[in-house]
Amino acid sequence: MYSFEYHRPGSVAEAAQLLTGNEDAKLLAGGMTYIPTLKQRLAQPSAVIDLGGIAELKGIKEEAGGLTIGAMTTHGEVASSAAVRQAIPALAALASNIGDAQVRNRGTIGGSISNNDPAADYPAALVALGATVRTSKRELAAEDFFTGMFETALEEDEILTAVHVPKPEKAAYSKFANPASRYAIVGVFVARTSAGVRVAVTGAGPAVFRATEMEQALAGNFSAAALDNVTVAADALNSDIHASAEYRAHLVKVMAKRAVEAAG
């Protein structure tokens, strides 16, 4: 690891101040992605700003017909939260299947979505549930937040503070996990809300995307059978040692059907 300065601010304002004008400073959340990156010398920050001491970034509260989850809330906290299990059980279940127990004890929802790994689980949930992402500067729809592979709408000096997730009528997530890491080879999150049905896919493409044809098919008939005649094109999907684009396309449909069945 290259050397760097370490800061542990006590508020978002203080963290933002440390970032401003310090181009090579980087934020540290659970460190489950960023510390391995540092260890491999793939990053050389001048300063690391640890968000771990900021109380306002932690915790889950019920708000405006849904849940507000602070950026520094760990996967383990989301998985075991009574509020999440009650309002959006599919989200708690998704969190309980991220990586392993020790990754869940440190890794955070804010870190996961800021990183926007193409195989990460949370992006699918947030897009399907129509969540709102809150930052130190603004609020934006999750769909507009995830812009590409490892890319988000976050600016250099912007800090993700929380996500607001509306409570769906029904929802479920189904993942075909990489057996070593548990990242999604393909993960599909299906949600039915008062605004309609949304299907979001992670792992399959360069970044999370909505399967609009599936959404239309499910709008009139929310059943796995409604997806029988939908075709998933392999063209824009990922191909790697774990799965070809064609296999991923196949898995998108299988996972979507399982999610619809699980949502009931």
Binding site: G31, I35, A180
Partner: peptide
């Protein structure tokens, strides 16, 4: 950060001590 040989408890919960400063 995958093998778990380094697991210790920090404030009562298990973490990978190779992935924490």
């Amino acid at each position: 950060s995958q093998c778990g040989a380094c697991v210790v408890h920090v404030n009562g919960s298990s973490v990978k001590s190779c992935t924490m400063l």
